[in-house]
Amino acid sequence: MVDASYFLAIGESLVCDHNDRFLFSNAELESLNIDICFDLPNVSEGFYCVAILKNLDKSQLKRSACLREALSKTETEDEFAVLSAAAQVVTWHASFKYCPRCATELMMDEMDLAKVCPSCGHHQYPRLSPCIIVLVRNGEKCLLAHSSKFKSGRYSTLAGFIEAGESAEHAVEREVMEEVGIKVKNIEYVCSQSWPFPHSFMLGFMADYSEGEITPDGEEILSADWFSVDDLPTIPPKFTISRQLIDRFIKER
């Protein structure tokens, strides 16, 4: 094995040692039962791999209790990116065992981070699901919403998957209308972030309110309102793209 830092996983879960350490050296892998290793995409400095374990040595390792918590403890964008990449590759490996065309068991491609069907030749790459996430501005206030998936009191920006055939900008308009019943204008791309829940690729936007009354859909969005900088509710943690958009709004004010 080359000199690299390794993430470890079993099934769909990353594992860590009993000091909550995720990265391991070559030497530390020698005593473990490794099934397969993947080189991770070049998303940060250094060389990283993820090693899939055949079994979990409970005396040495434990399943990660919460990926979100682990991500929240990362100190740099590079640390976030490589942990996100590891989590997404693990999910992909666990989810795609067989060819979606002919059901033959997939094999690892010798060159790329991909699996190939020995029967029909189909290549299966790690899945990415493009999404939009948007902060809507209305003068000195911004629109934040409480989702049915959030903890009590948590508010964030609006988000949703991009549908087949539509642009990211159209997805912004559609998702805002579907979730809270208003129209937006001046849609501006800001930044992106890989989001491993389970394999989302978030495209972040700012937009301005155009018309309409806030009307939460009652299913995905339970409540939403306009908030000023000095009266914000509980918002997402620093490592999230939603928080980056909110912080940008705060800085603009």
Results as ranks from 00 to 15, higher is better:
G160E: 00
S95H: 13
R68Q: 05
S72G: 13
K73H: 07
F47M: 09
K62Y: 09
K73E: 12
S147P: 05
P126Y: 08
E163I: 02
L53D: 03
P126V: 07
E140W: 11
V43K: 01
T91W: 12
E140L: 12
E110G: 07
H123M: 07
D39P: 01
V50Q: 01
R127V: 13
D112E: 12
E45L: 04
H123I: 13
L158C: 02
V50G: 00
T104A: 14
C142T: 05
C131T: 12
L135W: 06
R68K: 08
D112C: 09
E140M: 10
E105N: 09
T76N: 01
M111L: 13
C142V: 10
K141I: 05
E163N: 02
V89F: 11
R137E: 11
C99T: 12
Y48C: 08
C120T: 13
E45K: 03
K97D: 09
A159S: 12
L71V: 09
R68L: 11
W92H: 15
F150L: 07
H93D: 14
S156F: 04
Y155W: 05
V116F: 04
S156L: 02
V134E: 13
I133K: 03
L135E: 07
C66M: 11
F150P: 00
R137Y: 06
M107R: 13
P118N: 09
R101P: 00
L128N: 13
E140F: 13
V50F: 00
K97L: 15
Y155M: 06
R127G: 12
C49S: 09
V89I: 15
S44V: 14
A159K: 01
W92L: 05
G153S: 07
L40Y: 02
R63K: 15
I52Q: 04
S152K: 07
L53T: 03
K97S: 07
L53E: 03
P100M: 05
